[in-house]
Structures are given as C-alpha cells and as structure tokens.
Write a protein that binds this DNA or RNA. Structure first.
Lengths: 188, 188
DNA sequence: ACCTGAACACCGTTCAAGT
DNA sequence: ACCTGAACACCGTTCAAGT
C-alpha cells in the first residue's frame, strides 16, 4: 500500500501537536511515514502547501456559527470555539494566520462569519467586521501560544490559564459589542 | 575599529527592511558587516535575542500616547501610529509579536497604554484592554504584511491599500469603543 | 578583546535512477 | 505510479585557534 496525501497531512498534524511548529520539518514528516524526504514531493507541492492543508484540517474542527441565537452571542461563541480548537493544536494560531494569508487554504472563515453582521451596513463592512474579529482571535491566541512556548523553555513564567481565558473574553466581548454598535449606526 | 552590538542590530534592521524576515539569517547579517557568522555571537547571545533587539528598535519608533486628548482618540491614534511604524518595516508585525511573547524585549507597550483606560475597572482589566488592542493591531498588520508577501510572489492579488486602511480603522474604532463602554459598565 | 576556520547537526527542494 | 540516493544551497551554533 502506497502513501497518500492525507497520510502526509496526518503526520504533519501529529508532529505539530506533539512537538510544535519548530519541529515540523519535511524530513521529520518523512521519518514518521518511514519514507525519505524527497518522496513527500510526489504528494505535496511544497512545505507551504502542506502547511495550508494542515490549517484547513484545523479550521475544519471549528464549530459552525449558530444561526438560532442573537448575533452577539453567535459571534462570541464562534470566537471561543475557534480559540478552543487552536489551543488544542500547538502553535496553530501562527500557522493558521500565515496559511490564510498565503491564499493556499480552501477554508475561508469569513464567509461563515460575515452574514452574522447582516447586510445592514453593506457586505464590505460585514467582511471588515469579520476580519477584525478573526484578527483579534488569531492575535490573542498566537500570543498565548508563544508565551507558552517560551515558558516551557524556562525563559519566563507561565501565565494563569484562567486569567488568559478571562482576558480573551474581555477583548472579544468588547469588539463584538463595538462592531454591532457600529453596524447600528450605519443602519440609521 | 571593532564591531559593536548596535552595528549588528543596524544590519539586521536593514536586511529586514530590504529583503524581509525570510532573508534575515545570521549569515546574511554577518555578510553585511563583512565578518564571519561566528563573530556575531560575541556581541549577541543568539538569533532570538537579536530579533528581540530589532523589535525594541521598531517599538521605539512608535509615537507615545497623547495624554491631552480624550481616551478614545488617544487609543485610536496610538493604534494607527503603531500600524504606521510596523508597515514601514517589512514583516515586522510577526517579528514583534513573537519577540514580545519571548519576554526578551525591553519595551512593553502595555505600560504606556493601560493608564489610558483609567483605574475605573481596576489595573488588571486595564491590562486586558490594552492587550486586546495590541493583539488586534498586531494580528491585523500581520495579515496585511503576509498578504503583501504572498502577493509579491505572485500567489494572489494585492489588496487595495485604501481599503485595508479603512478595514483597520473599522476594527480599531469598534474595539476601542467596546472597551471604553465595558469600563463604564464596571464603574457604575 | 575580538575574530576566523572549520566543523556539527540540521534545513527545503530537485531529480536522475530505480522498481 | 511511486520512491530512493544523492546532491545543492542553505541554516544556527560552537569553539579551538589565531591576533
């Protein structure tokens, strides 16, 4: 039985979860699959593409926005859901952020998010709002994960995880509130 | 005349500005200084420390918060100021974000920012608010810069820079508004 | 005090050659 | 179709040895 693209992505996710982004090299992925590094390039164009596929895997785990609740709750629940998934995969915030920017991801979180803001302020503003929420979540979780990374290296003290969660909530609630208020301004 | 620590940082900033983070290697820095790579380790502990020093350089260019204006304007002006400085140094948002998380930076943007939120909601909440604003700015500019990076590689289309500025403003105004409103809630 | 030379253990990627 | 072997042009870091 020969290797398939999904096996390569599986192995990459496994290394990411167990050892972090710094150890996620093509050679390490090849080792896990008991194959030589060059073989990977039959299944994957390059490392960048592989990382985008990993990002797609991770983004696929994010719970969809709930259309049954009010916009404020739906957006905040989505943000917390995304944070949860990111925290489950080491260094994933950085990875997802750059993968999304690369344009190589299939997933686009904004298409699910923008409709929640309604068409009141226009589709463009809805995308801006979604983008801001995504930026805040990725930025905040990236900081949490990087701090964790350096804490494990003994370079600094680990922050209290309850405090980090409260700080995250604080920022997300404020942004969601401000974004929805801005939308109301435009509607009038 | 022998090399000094500042010369090493200068060279690093120059490479960052001219060629980006991907080309910022110890060997390239050494080349610019017409010296062998090993020599750098006399002036700098390692690459991580050098990157933190570069981040400090960049953060030093950020205009201080203006205490004369109202909090909302001061915070939004600071955010735009930070964005301007980051955009002037290629890939700097990513670099600054990880450098800050490493705990190796001397600069701490939050100490200047937290007082603007006032003690109304407590010092801890003020730090959370400052952190959220910093996360949003770093996240948003990182996305802009990464998109630019991949656009230059011909992988995707470059976004309109006016639109990016408006999107940034939209997010920042909303967050600032929401954070200040949350502070008021606590004060009552 | 400050730098070179040379090594060590790595990278991503390519590609002829094998099966 | 799928993989190996071997190479190419790189990395960060260390450290004896030079001046």
């Amino acid at each position: 039985m020969s290797l398939h693209r999904d096996d390569v992505i599986d192995a990459a996710v496994q290394i990411l979860d167990d050892y972090g982004l710094g150890d996620l090299s093509m050679r390490r992925v090849a080792d896990v699959l008991e194959v030589k590094a060059g073989a990977l390039y039959w299944h994957v164009a390059n490392k960048q593409t592989l990382l985008a596929a990993v990002a797609d895997r991770i983004l696929g785990e994010v719970p969809a926005v709930d259309p049954a609740v009010d916009p404020g709750s739906a957006l905040s629940a989505w943000a917390h859901g995304l944070r949860g998934v990111l925290l489950a995969h080491r260094d994933s915030a950085d990875l997802v952020a750059t993968a999304l920017a690369s344009g190589l991801c299939r997933a686009d979180p904004l298409v699910r998010l923008a409709p929640v803001f309604g068409g009141a302020a226009g589709a463009k503003v809805a995308r801006w709002s979604s983008g801001a929420l995504l930026d805040l979540v990725l930025g905040a979780v990236a900081r949490e994960q990087n701090a964790l990374l350096f804490a494990q290296l003994g370079k600094s003290v680990a922050a209290d995880s309850g405090d980090q969660a409260r700080a995250f909530s604080h920022g997300v609630e404020a942004l969601v509130r401000g974004l929805l208020a801005a939308d109301l301004d435009v509607k009038e």
